[in-house]
């Protein structure tokens, strides 16, 4: 379980690094976000939610049955749009409004 950082898209704002509950992210010598020990990631996706450039995607490691899908989030006021790229192609978006409680 971990994240993948798109260095080209990263604007170097450091928001991900600030949010990580494990202090695992940092800005490297080129000012881009990096996760030197990706195996320490808990998978909470705090960084994915924070990234304004959508440069961070979340995935499930192959050792826990991950199949290569990628997840990222777009925030729009109280809405979170979760984009999930499926392994064989195709995109599924799920929108959750923070103002709506879970049904379960």
């Amino acid at each position: 379980m971990s994240i993948e950082i798109n260095r080209e898209a990263c604007a170097g704002c450091g928001a991900c690094s600030e949010a990580c509950p494990g202090s695992l992210l940092l800005l490297d010598e080129k000012g881009k976000a990096a996760i030197p020990k990706p195996e320490r990631c808990w998978g909470c996706v705090s960084c994915v939610k924070e990234c304004p450039a959508r440069a961070i995607e979340f995935f499930l490691g192959a050792d826990m049955g991950g199949r290569g899908g990628r997840m990222s989030v777009r925030r729009e006021a109280s809405m979170l749009h979760w984009d999930i790229r499926k392994p064989g192609g195709g995109l599924k978006t799920i929108t959750v409004d923070s103002g709506d409680a879970n049904k379960y």
């Binding site: 379980m1 998978g43 996706v45 979340f58 995935f59 499930l60 049955g65 991950g66 199949r67 290569g68 899908g69 997840m71 979170l80 979760w82 999930i84 499926k86 392994p87 599924k92 799920i94 959750v96 879970n102 049904k103 379960y104």
Partner: peptide, 22 residues
């Protein structure tokens, strides 16, 4: 199904990703 996918996004997004990618 859809409600559960949303509920898990609010606490354990890995499970939602699992359901969709599998």
């Amino acid at each position: 199904d859809e409600d559960l996918q949303k509920a898990y996004l609010n606490m354990a997004p890995s499970q939602t990703l699992r359901w969709i990618e599998s």
